[in-house]
């Protein structure tokens, strides 16, 4: 069976001698022209919108100044290696923080969704934890921990690097957010799934591990990715403690030259990581959905 490249999945001919009839060919032509029409509308409207915005920006009286202070390409290339060094620290902190957040938030979510009466005190603790860290601005937590802990003069802990303390503050806050996302995923799985698993003899923990979590987590993958992307950006906030990561590095350069291009360079570095990540997760999600749900075009 050969496939006509212009009409999606519809076959063009098959071994039993069938060829598309005239009305089928007419339908395919109509479908093609509909999709061409849709494409051209999208193209024209994109060109108009982007062109209009571009024109407004470029023809504004301040554009030459903005171009020189934000988009100075040679200067940007010059500072790129220094900012990239800082960015590597960002990535390292994100890697460490995301692992810690994943483990801790899973524990908090499981505690909060547990039903055994024995876990009641832990449930209350977890709830208080989530309420507190979700409700406190991240920047305050970073300041409190970053400056407060060293001031306590505790042995070992107080002498930790500010990058570690700042990361710990981010982990504490994000664990609150992510735990709630995971909890909502767990709660979204229909009770009949739990009933089916328990009636097969699976323990409560096995039910969670093999039936509830795989479905619940998949459902909340988009918001989890959302949190991951904002984590990537919020890690830059440790710069307020004096950690020289990408944003801090860009600020240092900007202060030297009074040119804001380093900020734009830092922004581009973040985008280079976050955009492919988002696309990749979209793809993974789409394939897992289409593998499970085999139904129609509607």
């Amino acid at each position: 069976m050969t496939l006509d490249p212009t009409s999606g999945d519809a076959p063009f001919a098959s071994p039993d001698g069938w060829r598309p009839s005239e009305h089928e060919l007419a339908r395919r032509a109509a479908r093609r022209s509909q999709s061409r029409r849709g494409m051209s509308i999208a193209l024209v409207s994109s060109v108009v919108v982007i062109g209009a915005l571009g024109t407004v920006v470029v023809t504004s009286s301040g554009w030459p100044v903005v171009r020189d202070t934000f988009f100075d390409v040679p200067y940007g290339l010059e500072v790129l290696p220094i900012i990239f060094d800082g960015f590597k620290l960002d990535l390292l902190l994100v890697a460490i923080a995301s692992v810690c957040i994943a483990v801790l938030s899973m524990i908090v979510a499981l505690v909060r969704t547990s039903r055994s009466p024995a876990a009641a005190p832990f449930r209350i603790l977890a709830t208080v934890y989530v309420d507190f860290f979700r409700g406190t601005p991240l920047i305050l937590v970073i300041l409190l921990i970053g400056f407060g802990i060293p001031a306590l003069n505790l042995p070992k802990i107080s002498s930790l690097d500010v990058a570690v303390l700042g990361t710990a503050a981010i982990v504490l806050t994000y664990t609150g957010y992510v735990a709630e996302v995971i909890r909502s995923g767990i709660l979204s799985v229909h009770p009949s799934q739990r009933a089916a698993a328990r009636s097969l003899g699976l323990s409560n923990a096995q039910t969670m591990r093999h039936v509830v979590l795989p479905q619940g987590i998949r459902r909340v993958m988009p918001p989890l990715l959302n949190d991951f992307v904002s984590l990537l950006k919020d890690v830059g906030l440790v710069s307020i403690l004096g950690v020289t990561e990408a944003i801090q590095q860009a600020q240092i350069e900007t202060n030297k030259s009074f040119n804001y291009t380093p900020y734009v360079v830092a922004a581009l570095l973040f985008l280079i990581v976050t955009i492919p990540l988002t696309r990749f997760t979209d793809r993974v999600l789409a394939t897992s959905i289409s593998r499970q749900n085999a139904q129609g075009t509607a």
Binding site: A10, P11, W18, P20, S21, H23, E24, A26, R27, A30, R31, Q34, Q295, G296, T297, A298
Partner: peptide, 26 residues
């Protein structure tokens, strides 16, 4: 049945409802 109410696209043929071809994208 799913082809009749256009939950699936057919490869060929006509689905006439009151004489109108339902499979026609127009």
């Amino acid at each position: 049945l799913r082809c009749i109410n256009q939950l699936e696209l057919i490869d060929d043929g006509l689905v006439l409802f009151d004489g109108v071809d339902l499979a026609d994208p127009r």
